Computed example of a mutant assay.
Amino acid sequence: MSKVKYYYDPDTLSYRKIEAKKSRKYRNLLFFVLGAALFGFLGLIFLLNTNLINTPRELSLQREVQNYELQFEILNKKMDQIENVLANIEDRDNNIYRLYFEANPIPEEQRKAGFGGVNRYKSLEGFNNSEIIIDASKRLDVIQKQMVIQSKSLDEIAKLAEEKEKLLAAIPAIQPVRNEDLKRMASGYGWRTDPFTKARKKHWGMDFTAPRGTPIFATGDGEVTRADNNSSGYGKHIRIDHGYGYMSLYAHLSKYNVTKGQKVKRGDLIGFVGNTGRSEAPHLHYEVWKDKERINPINFYYGSLSPQEFENMLKYATQENQSLD
């Protein structure tokens, strides 16, 4: 309750009550309302800029940010697992696959190199959680690059494997005449006595004695480059280009079972034993060439002979006897 105020009136020599004017009352009320509103507004601004109170929207945004942080934590754990799996694949790639196929290992710094030059993550800067987002983005970019490099490496390995498979199929690796069809292995590679001049002469292949008409088989995959009687001394003969620098030659045939330009596989019937050309008796003269040089065919029979059969052949092949051509 407001105090009643008085003033002294000298005319009446008495105290009189001071009556407040209505305009003053309204002015005081207006000042009070304005002051209260201003104080309330300033208080609201203060509270909104502190953590003492949050609006429903702010609470919703906080929950959303917490959810994003949880998702990034889960993402980082998944990236840890992916990095471990990739590291295992890369280790096997370098130390098993590439080693087996004689390919150079891919350096670690090349596999895990970052991205230089322009700042790829500038648009992610300036936010409360920029560090977390940029770190996750960098890891994802590196993982993506690792996967691209590993994919290309496996493509290279697959191509090398295919080439190696072709190489293994192309090498002249079997005996051109079956053991059961042979009378004997007459003469091997090296210095032998010429059957016509009786002079000591280098014999560039192996002679397999067999009856006329005995089947002769391609010793490796390739293409027939010659099947004719136009080479001195060989008579009817076949030459197969196996690729990779390998060529095989089959001489003194009675007839052909292939023609020039024909593709053949290892084990295909290509002709028959005969006695044509410079030959003393029915037999197959067989040669293997590597990079245009004649080499000992006995080193290539691992695909058709048992260890005992190979040992017996090696024994006969090293004897300095008389050749049949």
Rank of each mutant, 00 (worst) to 15 (best):
Arg178Val: 10
Val273Arg: 12
Lys315Thr: 06
Ser279Glu: 00
Ala136Pro: 03
Asp181Glu: 10
Gln110Thr: 13
Gly261Ala: 03
Lys198His: 15
Leu160Val: 06
Ser2Asp: 11
Asp221Ile: 04
Glu165Tyr: 14
Phe300Gln: 03
Ala210Leu: 13
Thr259Met: 09
Asn94Asp: 04
Pro10Met: 08
Met1His: 07
Asp268Cys: 06
Leu324His: 08
Gly213Leu: 10
His237Met: 08
Glu73Val: 07
Gly35Asn: 15
Gly220Met: 04
Glu83Ser: 14
Arg178Glu: 00
Lys138Val: 15
Lys22Leu: 11
Asn94Cys: 12
Thr214Leu: 06
Ala20Cys: 10
Ala20Gly: 10
Ser306His: 02
Lys198Ile: 05
Lys183Arg: 04
Glu309Gly: 05
Ala281Phe: 08
Ala161His: 11
Asp241Arg: 09
Tyr189Trp: 08
Phe272Gly: 10
His283Met: 03
Ala227Leu: 07
Thr50Pro: 03
Lys17Met: 12
Leu269Gln: 11
Leu314Asn: 12
Asn312His: 06
Ser187Arg: 03
Arg111Asp: 00
Phe72Ala: 15
Met79Pro: 00
Val177Lys: 00
Thr225Lys: 05
Thr55Leu: 12
Thr50Tyr: 06
Leu38Gly: 11
Leu182Gly: 01
Asn296Arg: 01
Arg278Phe: 11
Ala87Asp: 12
Glu102Met: 07
Glu180Met: 04
Asn312Ser: 05
Arg120Leu: 12
Val224Ile: 13
Glu320Arg: 03
Glu64Ala: 15
His203Phe: 13
Arg27Glu: 02
Asn95Glu: 14
Asn321Ile: 05
Leu38His: 10
Leu30Cys: 10
Gly116Ile: 01
Pro297Ala: 01
Leu249Trp: 03
Thr193Asn: 14
Asn54His: 13
Val273His: 11
Tyr8Phe: 05
Ala103Pro: 02
Glu163Ile: 01
Lys22His: 14
Ala20Asp: 08
Ser123Met: 04
Val33Ala: 13
Pro172Met: 02
Tyr121Glu: 09
Ala169Pro: 07
Gly190Phe: 04
Gly261Arg: 03
Arg139Ser: 04
Ile240Asp: 09
Glu131Tyr: 04
Ile82Asp: 05
Asn88Glu: 07
Arg92Leu: 09
Gln62Ala: 09
Lys25Pro: 10
Asn230Asp: 14
Arg24Met: 02
Tyr246Gly: 03
His203Thr: 08
Leu253Phe: 10
Glu90Ser: 10
Asn296Thr: 03
Tyr256Ile: 05
Glu125Asp: 08
Ile74Lys: 00
Val142Gly: 02
Leu30Met: 05
Asp241Ala: 12
Asn95Arg: 09
